[in-house]
Design a protein around this nucleic acid. Structure first.
Lengths: 194, 194, 194, 194
DNA sequence: GATGAATGAGCGTTCATTCAT
DNA sequence: AATGAATGAACGCTCATTCAT
């Protein structure tokens, strides 16, 4: 087994243990036992417990980053709304294809400590900036309501996060496309009718 | 200083320390030093570290429970929508009048351990049940869009949570009524315009 | 309730708690709760936990001291053997009329710490000195076998202690006179027959 | 140093510290300092403080168990009495070859807590059952006085325990064979002569 | 590179004792 | 005298990390 496979193997099992136990209750002992390597070996591949956790989160951030495609207002084939829906679909799909990591991201990584909070906030900031930009573009095209695009972005983020949080934490059996449709419909028209 | 004042005093400072450090980085030593009591005194009033944290969260749950008023579809004075807005206002107000506790609730208490996760999930379940009922009533009156009320409730919850999370974590200076209006507007019409 | 009654009351309940829990597991809290006095009151009557325990043991030593009557070789009415038997009877009776204290003496007080060990050893030394003197007198009268009277005293002490230890620890239902007879018979003739 | 040597090393020094201080006054700190290992190392080899103490006592029980040989009434070479004397010799020898452990057994382990009391009582029960059986056999052969064999066993046990207790606690300089002879003589004929 | 025994800083908790009322 | 709230020294144990083999 070569170095990078070994690394993967540890990473994978660490993710399982973190997802099952949460950050603090996840012991290095359980991770190495699960991964089938010696305790010292763990430290050959990762600086410390915090680092491997951070890497798991960072990888998810990266996968999410790839899932989000910049909205192009001039795209002749797909409207801004469609592109937003595509993004929602990609995000939902990315997060639900690995529920363990999603649980780590939406639950275990939250409130870990001030430094991690900043990292999380930074990522959400970045993501909502992307969305915000798309919304501003959409507003110029009349496709997005006039209003605080920054707030819209936050609310959207919150709706997505909660939906997925509930799904992974409670094992709700919502179909991915169903989730996407609900989210998109909600963004489109809310639900209150005067 | 009588017993209940002393209890309050410890509770207050514990809340500050938890909010500043997060659950695990909050040491009993810092709590008692901040509260100006001896280590042993802490244990006269609280079973253990976990118990005081749980009490802080429980009290917030209770305050929130009081803030939420059951929506009455037959109320002649306030429409379902207005009552929902009142509830949003109450929730936002309750959480923003004590940002430290809100940070604890929305950040530190998340992913603490499986038992606490269940408690959290339980509270959100209960809250969204209330909202869901209101939405179902609203649907009967034609005031809420046909659609999965349970999903609407989750998305609403997520939007509120994220908005307040951002406000308390980043110290965003949004006016309470502004937040309420944005949330209500969002629930009312989303933002995407075909 | 006057001072000495109050003292008695605490002492009595302390004895019960020590007997039930053993020295270390007996908490001042339980003693005062059982005695129905405030924690501070305890310290008005006793120096500290160790002191009350020591007093319980000392009182038992004193009661035992009174139970043991110096053997008079010139006593015309009762032979040395009879006087020894009387002593055994008194000791057994004294210890079995208060099994809780006996358990404290034979179990809880043992191995408490080096200082207490010395106290115990001192008491046993003193007691066996008394017996030893009686045996030496008996040897002069030809009523006690020639042999190391000091050893005889130790073995006698051990036999009595073990018998009573078993009785109080296991609640064996031996009749006092039966115990006395067995002990006396044992001292008289052993049990091995060539 | 391999695992079992390291274990021995810790066990040995723990025994010394327990013997010197008694169970409660023996601190893990002193044990590890004496053994020359780190605090954590202790816990690699032993579950907790109680466990290492229990192991010390259990090992002594086991050594004693091996020292006691079932008495065979049909043994043509050694009479029941001789076999009993052999057993006394073995017991005395086993306990005096390691006075520290004997002090632990006869002093520190006594009255530790109800659970340990039961363990102790259980061992003494078992041991005296063996002796009792031998005595019953001896009675059938006319070599042991008619009488309550169970009581004889207890008294014998007590005599042995006290003798060794005094020897190890006070450092009495009795020769092993002397002790055996005294004990055996005592069992044989007691000392009172009408 | 891999191992796993060893390390030791760190923390929550207990409980005998004190002391202001 | 009585109370009981307050104290703080003390200690067992955990577990992430290191390092000799």
């Amino acid at each position: 087994m070569d170095k990078s496979e070994r690394r993967q193997q540890i990473l994978q099992h660490a993710r399982d243990v973190f997802a099952r136990r949460g950050y603090h209750a996840a012991k290095i002992d359980e991770i190495v036992a699960t991964a089938g390597v010696a305790r010292g070996t763990f430290y050959l591949y990762f600086e410390d417990k915090r680092a491997i956790f951070e890497e798991i989160v960072d990888r998810t951030f990266m996968r999410l980053g790839l899932a989000i495609v910049r909205v192009d207002p001039d795209n002749a084939e797909r409207s801004v709304a469609e592109q937003i829906k595509d993004n929602i679909r990609n995000i939902v799909h990315t997060l639900l294809e690995d529920p363990g990591t999603t649980k780590i991201l939406l639950s275990d990584a939250v409130g870990l400590d001030p430094a991690f909070d900043r990292k999380l906030l930074g990522f959400y900031e970045e993501s909502s900036k992307l969305l915000e930009q798309a919304l501003v573009d959409g507003q110029a095209l009349g496709m997005v309501a006039q209003g605080d695009a920054h707030v819209y972005a936050m609310l959207t983020l919150g709706a997505i996060k909660e939906m997925l949080y509930q799904v992974v934490m409670r094992g709700l059996a919502y179909d991915e496309e169903r989730i996407v449709d609900e989210l998109f419909g909600f963004l489109g028209a809310g639900y209150l009718r005067a």
